[in-house]
Design a protein around this nucleic acid. Sequence first.
DNA 1: GGGCTATTTATACACTTGCACAACAAGCTC
DNA 2: GAGCTTGTTGTGCAAGTGTATAAATAGCCC
Lengths: 224, 224
Amino acid sequence: MPDAANPAPMNTPSRRRFRREGEERRRQDLIEATLDSVAEHGLQGATLRTIALRAGVTAGLIRHYFPGKEELLQEAYAALMGRMTEQAKAALVMEDASPRQRLAAFVTANLNVPIIDARVFSLWATFIGRAGADPSLARAHREGYLGFRNEVEAVVAEVLAAERREPDASQLRHHAIAINAIIDGLWIEGCLAGDMFSPGELAAIGIKTVEAELGLAPEREDNQ
Amino acid sequence: MPDAANPAPMNTPSRRRFRREGEERRRQDLIEATLDSVAEHGLQGATLRTIALRAGVTAGLIRHYFPGKEELLQEAYAALMGRMTEQAKAALVMEDASPRQRLAAFVTANLNVPIIDARVFSLWATFIGRAGADPSLARAHREGYLGFRNEVEAVVAEVLAAERREPDASQLRHHAIAINAIIDGLWIEGCLAGDMFSPGELAAIGIKTVEAELGLAPEREDNQ
DNA sequence: GGGCTATTTATACACTTGCACAACAAGCTC
DNA sequence: GAGCTTGTTGTGCAAGTGTATAAATAGCCC
């Protein structure tokens, strides 16, 4: 019996070499690997082994950082949502710009890369599809949605104020709902079939539609 | 050992009783059970055993009607898409109605039950989330989307013609893209958080936004 | 009613999954 | 460098997966 429990007496063929990373780093790597796996193979294809392989570790390690797969997925979704809303709102912080310009910039930012992105859309759809059955997902979405809509509503209020118009709360709410829908709808179209639109086309349509919704006079074509 | 391989010598405890259904009936039942399972537990929870249980048969039978799980899922998705586009287009066949009324009816139909429906949305999101990785899904979506958009474009052309306006092809296309986005965006909001809107509110917003996009004069409030 | 056929059940199998746990070594402290 | 902590690996396991296939029986034709 030359090869029993010890396969070769020369040297224990050595386990895999590894480095100890900081906790925060590992957790983020694992979350990113999870998002990649879900985007590529869906929730069913995102197994612990697939995720670990992508993160460059072995499956057992995941249990060292997360109580279970469920929690890993939840944290990954939270990270995704956080990034999305953060990017969207970032377009609103413009100094020295008229409300109307800020609104236009907001629409433009939401209808171009990196927000128009097939991977992000795939993730969003995959997770949101479970919202009907998973209350925590539904709540997370609702919070993100309302936050987004409130941002829209605030800008709309500024724009209309600059136009000397005084909408009541109900009108403001309707404007925000409609504009949010316009952006969402165009975002989906862009993510799913970006090649059907020329660069900047979606943003142009978005701005025009939003301004029509608000009853703003069309901009002159010849300004600068 | 009183209970060995034969648990009771009295009578072979009998297999499950069953009825032979027609092929078409069985296939449809299985597809419906598949959609139910996907809507409730996601793609990962839609196992052959779950589906079979819901359809009132045993798992093995599925292989008698479908080559494999993959094909069952594809047929289920096709059935879903077919039903969705069919319902959406059905709202357009109105005799004795002005183009503008038909457009309004179209928007209204798409923003109320049964098209506003959490289960259908869950299914749509779950499947469309895989479009990035599955070309056949992506193609199916694109065809459905373009079909829908072309319907919109046709009605828009009628509406504008009735208003003595003569948009060129590019303007028509932009209108269709925008209106499609408005409907999609409001549809999502209604499916995900229908309780945040009063009955008919989404449809009212949709009509107003669409008419603003087309530059139609607001309707008088006092007509009948 | 007696047989025939093919729908349906039931069981088996190879494989994957999430999770548990023991062994190991990377890198800090002294 | 010795020793210790703990991040990391590897293996094992029970449950569940899709598929294959044999056995049974429902319902039709005569």
